[in-house]
Nucleic acid binder design. Sequence first.
DNA 1: AGCCAGGCTACCG
DNA 2: CGGTAGCATGGC
Length: 210
Amino acid sequence: MEIYDFLFEKYGEQRWWPVHSSLGEGDRRFEIIIGCILTQNTSWKNVEKVVDNLYERGLISAKKILEVDVDVLKDLIRSAGYYNQKAERLKRLARFYLNFSNSVPTREDLLELNGVGEETADSILLYAYDLPYFVVDTYTKRFIGCLLEGEGKNFKGHSYGEWQDFFHSAFFKLDEEKKVKLFKEFHALIVQYCKDVCVKGRKFCEDCNI
DNA sequence: AGCCAGGCTACCG
DNA sequence: CGGTAGCATGGC
């Protein structure tokens, strides 16, 4: 919690989602899901263009994504990279989303989808469905691995679940609503801190006050 | 010019 | 099982 407070004071609220707050409830959630897929191993800057692109064409909608021709979709999401894979993943997620229009998918439901791994599943559960799953990405591993095991290692040999458990157990006392709020913000703050201070390929540890 | 970005799958030993 | 090549674009 001390680390969280430090980061929040340093950077403030991160406001990741939604990108377009004028969307209706359901589409707003779907926009988050789209973002989770598109940003896989891709800078958010490149993804943002695509999200705006889709928004302007009224395609932030599971139904519309299913209707649009897959080659047209590929062209629209081009700048987010891996467009062949990601177009198929968006189609699968759109169908999935409609299937769960009256219920909430579980983590296992999400992981059954081709193109959804642990991080993407947790991002969707946390940011789109407001469920308390801490998201572990490469930044998070670098950040917390450095604090727990020392700087300069590659932090292999730990499973995704081990990293996640560290955060879950640290905040087990909070009620669900507070966890969700904190997990969303904490993860985004860690990303910001890593872009700013724990920059890959360079060592700015002398600038690290944590 | 080269490395990196809010990963996942398939396939290898 | 753990480890890794391939996927692709744009920014710095």
